[in-house]
Design a protein around this nucleic acid. Structure first.
Length: 200
DNA sequence: GATCGGATTGACT
DNA sequence: GTCAATCCGATCA
């Protein structure tokens, strides 16, 4: 059921970001199962990508997770407020990762609603990287955890989207990366209500 | 030891 | 549409 470690070893992080659209993401924390299928991703392509934390081969305590062999989670804190989930890919010492920006929730809706402090379920529950992590209970405590674990993992349940159903556009919030900010490394399911803001 | 600012969100005008 | 929140990683001294 779980995507095998070999799936994450690809050295083409952009192709993998595209392939992750439609894959299911689950967490099992405190006995609570939550998950859904991925509808929005962004690729961060190693040491030559100015938008990546690992640009210029920056090995630091934070980025060392990205240098691990593909198949682990990279979780970090952004703006002092939001935790973000990335899927580390490629081989050891190649710091490639895919940011999970949105999920279409299918399991554990009430648990997610509680974690998000929402009275009723709205599309914003898992829309945007900070929201996905919060709804699924993901924090830095599980940084570097294996995706073969029983805490956090991905599955292929046979769902897939044709190329014409998936938009390929520049990434969000990376203006500081100058020309690399224009790279078409963001993928999302057209028209899906859980996709974060610019979705047309 | 000090300073800068971010792979964002949500509340408010 | 604007803007505050809020922490710590990265960088420089």
């Amino acid at each position: 059921m779980k995507l095998p470690d070999s799936y994450y070893q690809s050295n083409d992080v952009v192709a993998l970001a595209r392939d992750l659209i439609g894959k299911y993401l689950f967490t099992n924390l405190d006995g609570q199962l939550t998950g859904g299928y991925i509808v929005e991703t962004e690729a961060y392509a190693g040491i030559i990508d100015k938008a990546s934390h690992a640009y210029g081969d920056r090995r630091t305590p934070r980025t060392q997770t990205m240098y691990m062999q593909g198949g682990v989670a990279y979780v970090y804190l952004c703006y002092g407020i939001h935790e973000m989930l990335n899927i580390v890919t490629s081989v050891e010492d190649q710091p490639h990762a895919v940011l999970i920006r949105a999920v279409d929730p299918t399991i554990g809706l009430d648990v997610m609603r509680y974690r998000r402090n929402m009275a009723v379920i709205k599309p914003t529950i898992t829309s945007g990287p900070g929201s996905v992590a919060k709804a699924l209970g993901i924090s830095r405590k599980i940084n570097a955890i294996s995706l073969q674990s029983d805490v956090l993992w991905l599955e292929d349940r046979g769902l897939s989207f044709a190329d014409e159903e998936v938009a390929t556009v520049p990434r969000v919030g990376v203006d500081y990366a100058k020309e690399d900010a224009l790279l078409p490394y963001r993928f999302y399911v057209k028209g899906n209500k859980y996709v974060s803001k610019p979705n047309r």
